[in-house]
Design a binder for these strands. Structure first.
Length: 575
DNA sequence: GCCGTTTTCGGCCCGACTGTTTTCAGTCG
């Protein structure tokens, strides 16, 4: 059995959930969570590392004990200590803490006093008014629990970054319209540019906190005010997204921005360093005793921790602190580094704009080139091109290119990878292309071995260049197909192929962890929009954000290069 | 449970808001 990092992370997180309900040592709980996060974000497979005889206890937050537990699970498929905890505290209890207002302490009481382990039992007990009798509960909490169960755990909902931007724009404009609010910024996972966000963490500076809060809760998109104090308030918008506003004074802006941007693990690590110097960091600033010694800017926060500025996308406690100390922070790729788009569609297949329109839009973005990569024939619903139609498109591109100065349309095609691993078009037409973008578009339900083999076989074709949207996932809609990405990435390096970071906000595929893995192994990435219209070209920034989260630098990206340099990289050996 | 050119033991980030707790625990971020 193959043990994936996600399995081990889930195991440790479950342990942490249950230990929390048992009121175990909070630092022991944190240790499990930190280890889970380390494993989950690790750009290598842990079971593989073990097989190679490498020491897991070198990983941050993993000591002798947890390394042993990982080994036990990899070897036996079981974790004895977790089973012991589960015998006392059923795993189902962890799900109850997802209900807002129910934390580990209350869930513990519910289990001990009423024997409740499931949502159904909880609802029944609440309806029978048995919950309000318990210590630290009340009729109000009982009603709230029933409400939350009825709405069935909307708390879990996450929003695509592009959707969140939509909500954020209106809100930020509204906040800025208030007198006295000088700065407004959306921090949190939004600022770290995670592919999805659970809520919006908004920071505002204002001398009069309560006035800013009043203005905030009066926003006409507010559905419910969940909490409201003089400096902080939480609301639910009609769109279903939760928003936290935090108001601080101007001199605390940097400290508050750092605090509110997170991630939590990163903040803990930075605070620890400042604390080690005998100072204190909170959202109001850096303090030496009672005396404020900084915090107006984020740079001051990092400086106090003896660190250079760390970009928000890196702040996940995935080694950025260590890299910063060693002077090895990546110089992350910027949108301005991008010189062209390597995956786009036109009306010839399922796009909405004409070839010339796409070219004009690309030039307006300042691009040096745009690859046209319409679907191949197997994608019939997308009016995929057969060799004849593709040949006609290539002729048309030649004609258009004659008229451009300092810009070039590149000849490409999004070639289907057939179920047997063959490419959907014959070499006779593929050889006329500048490069191919190859993708899986059907038979998503193959087993992991079959699916991996299918892609590896396709990569064996010397006309295979870039693997498009490598996992096929659609955020919030469907998971990716089962595929062994470790092997795909290694195979790409051996064969001189590349992987795409699909910039469409519903895809963002590769994810950040695999971007970093590709970089470490030496596989370059294409950041491409998969645009189906001229508007679609503007999604590039989401792909760049995703790549930045994966520590990607301009040199790691194919399309930061001029066409001349790019062409050399795309020519596979033996061709 | 992890971790250490201060430590192998004793630390481990910090604060706002809520509610029923009359002095603070629980929850959340």
């Amino acid at each position: 059995m193959t043990v994936h990092n996600a399995d081990i992370a889930a195991l440790f997180n479950r342990m942490a959930d249950l230990l929390e309900i048992e009121a175990a040592n909070p630092f022991r709980i944190r240790a499990y969570r930190r280890a889970a996060s380390t494993i989950e974000d690790l750009p290598e497979n842990v079971a593989q590392m073990m097989a190679e005889g490498r020491s897991l206890s070198d990983l941050p937050g993993i000591g002798e004990d947890l390394a042993g537990k990982i080994a036990e699970f990899v070897e036996t498929g079981h974790l004895k200590s977790l089973e012991e905890v589960e015998a006392r505290t059923p795993s189902a209890l962890a799900a109850l803490t997802a209900i807002p207002g129910l934390g580990p302490k209350r869930v513990h009481v519910l289990h001990q006093s009423l024997g409740i382990t499931t949502l159904e039992q909880l609802a029944k007990a609440a309806r029978e008014h048995r919950v309000r009798e318990l210590p630290r509960f009340s009729a109000a909490i009982e009603t709230k629990i029933l409400d939350e169960i009825a709405k069935h755990r909307t708390a879990e909902k996450r929003f695509k970054i592009s959707t969140a931007e939509d909500f954020a724009r209106g809100l930020v404009d509204y906040l800025r319209s208030a007198l006295g609010i000088t700065q407004t910024l959306v921090a949190g996972s939004f600022r770290r540019r995670k592919e999805t966000v659970g809520d919006l963490d908004v920071l505002a500076t204002c001398a009069d906190g309560p006035a800013a809060i009043e203005h905030f809760v009066a926003y006409d998109e507010v559905e419910t005010v969940l909490s409201k104090g003089p400096t902080r308030s939480t609301v639910l918008l009609k769109a279903g997204i939760q928003v936290d506003l935090r108001v601080v004074a101007e001199e605390s802006y940097g400290a508050a921005l750092h605090y509110f941007t997170g991630s939590k693990a990163h903040n803990i690590a930075v605070r620890k360093r400042i604390q080690d110097k005998g100072w204190k960091l909170n959202e109001y600033g850096i303090f030496d005793g009672e005396k404020r010694i900084g915090g107006r800017t984020e740079e001051e926060v990092f400086r106090a921790a003896d660190l250079p500025y760390i970009e928000p996308e890196l702040r996940e406690d995935r080694g950025e602190i260590e890299a910063a100390l060693a002077g090895k922070l990546p110089r992350l790729v910027w949108l301005q580094d991008i010189k062209g788009d390597l995956h786009t569609h036109t009306r010839a297949s399922d796009g909405k704009s004409e070839l010339a329109e796409m070219a004009a839009a690309a030039q307006a973005l300042g691009y040096e080139y745009l690859a046209v990569s319409d679907h191949s024939r197997h994608a019939t619903v997308a009016h995929g091109l057969d060799p004849k139609r593709l040949a006609a498109q290539l002729d048309e591109i030649d004609k258009l290119n004659d008229g451009y100065d300092g810009f070039r349309l590149l000849k490409s095609c999004e070639v289907d990878i057939l179920a047997d691993g063959k490419l959907d078009l014959p070499d006779s037409i593929l050889k006329r292309l500048d490069f191919t973008v190859c993708a899986v578009h059907y038979q998503f339900n193959l087993g992991i071995e079959e699916q991996t083999q299918r892609i590896l076989r396709a990569m064996d074709n010397r006309y295979f260049n870039i693997l498009a949207h490598p996992t096929g996932r659609l955020l919030g809609e469907r998971p990716g197909y089962a595929v062994d990405m470790d092997r795909i990435i290694s195979a790409a390096r051996e064969r001189g192929c590349f992987l795409e970071v699909n910039a469409h906000p519903t895809r963002l595929d590769l994810d950040d962890v695999h971007c970093r893995q590709a970089k470490q192994i030496g596989v370059k990435l294409a950041i491409s929009t998969d645009a189906h219209s001229t508007m679609g070209l503007r999604a590039m920034r989401y792909g760049v954000d995703q790549a930045r989260r994966g520590w990607i630098e301009a040199d790691d990206v194919l399309n930061t290069r001029s066409w001349g340099e790019l062409k050399k990289l795309l020519s596979r050996r033996g061709l």
